[in-house]
Computed example of a mutant assay.
Amino acid sequence: MKKISGIFILIFLLAACGQTNENQEQSGDNSDSPEPIEVEIDMENEAEAEEEIKIGAHVTQGEETVTDANEVLFEIWKEGEKEDSEEIMAEEPANNTYFIKQSFEEDGIYHVTAHVTARGMHSMPTEEITVGEAEQEESKAEEDSEDIHAGHQHGSPVTADLQSPSEIKAGEETELSFQIAEEGEPINEARVRLEIWQRGDDTREWVDTEEKNGMYAASHTFENSGDYMVTVHIEDQEDLHEHVDKIISVK
């Protein structure tokens, strides 16, 4: 009887040890959050009216090129005419890049946002293109920017790429994460605040983010479905004071 009992105890200890190791492995897997996706818009800085150009989006996750995105949609609008933006779905990736062909009817400054949903995350960087003779509009935009950011000594563009769940639902707490960079270099130890409001509503909510793993993140609950405006305010101790506007669709 003592010998049999000893065998049962040994089996029990081995099983418990195996279960502990399995739980530890699972716990380790859960604690390792996936790397965010990064989207680089590939297009010319200038074009002529009626000229057809290619606009591409190169998607990566860490060192891996992403070619299995759920959706890559380009949103294009002329300066000051966001409400009349055009949305175009990208074709299947060619040479590891999602792309569309686009022409612009008239001169002006145009904005291009690549809305990319892939691997449970969403990113939506924006770039500009100058079409035809748009010097006056461009000069005015630069003057306005100087008026808004008087004393700002950073001449290079600051970006805030949104990394969030592919679908944001009303009434559910969601973590909004932003990758903040200047000329592609991450900005660390900055104060980043989110100004959030729904289109058509004057009520603004301010949310402070926390920096972790090179990202600035905050939790927020969108009460209603629809489009929300999010202005990312970025400040540091070297006279940087920038803001980047984003649009978030809530189901």
Rank of each mutant, 00 (worst) to 15 (best):
F74Q: 05
Q24P: 00
I4S: 04
W206I: 09
E185Q: 11
F74Y: 12
E128W: 02
S27F: 03
E173P: 00
L13D: 04
I187W: 08
A217E: 08
E127I: 05
P93S: 02
E242C: 03
S5D: 05
E81W: 11
M229C: 02
T159C: 05
V72N: 10
V116G: 04
H115K: 09
H243C: 06
V192E: 08
H243Y: 13
H233T: 12
I76A: 13
E50K: 15
T203H: 06
A134L: 02
G62P: 01
E71K: 07
S103W: 00
F8T: 06
A150E: 08
E238Q: 13
L176I: 03
E106K: 03
I55K: 01
T65E: 13
G120M: 15
T113E: 12
Q136K: 09
T117P: 01
E25W: 10
V116F: 03
H122V: 01
Q153K: 15
E173Y: 00
E195C: 00
R204A: 01
Q19R: 11
T209F: 14
H111G: 06
S166W: 12
H241L: 08
F99Y: 11
P93C: 00
A16V: 06
D147Q: 07
G171E: 09
A150G: 09
N95I: 00
S103G: 04
E137F: 06
E238M: 10
F104H: 03
L176N: 05
E135Y: 02
L14R: 01
A49M: 00
Q24M: 10
M121Y: 00
Q102V: 06
A217Q: 10
A190C: 05
W206L: 12
G214F: 05
N30P: 00
D208S: 11
L10K: 07
D107S: 07
S27L: 02
H111Q: 09
V39H: 02
R193Y: 06
A69Q: 01
E79N: 06
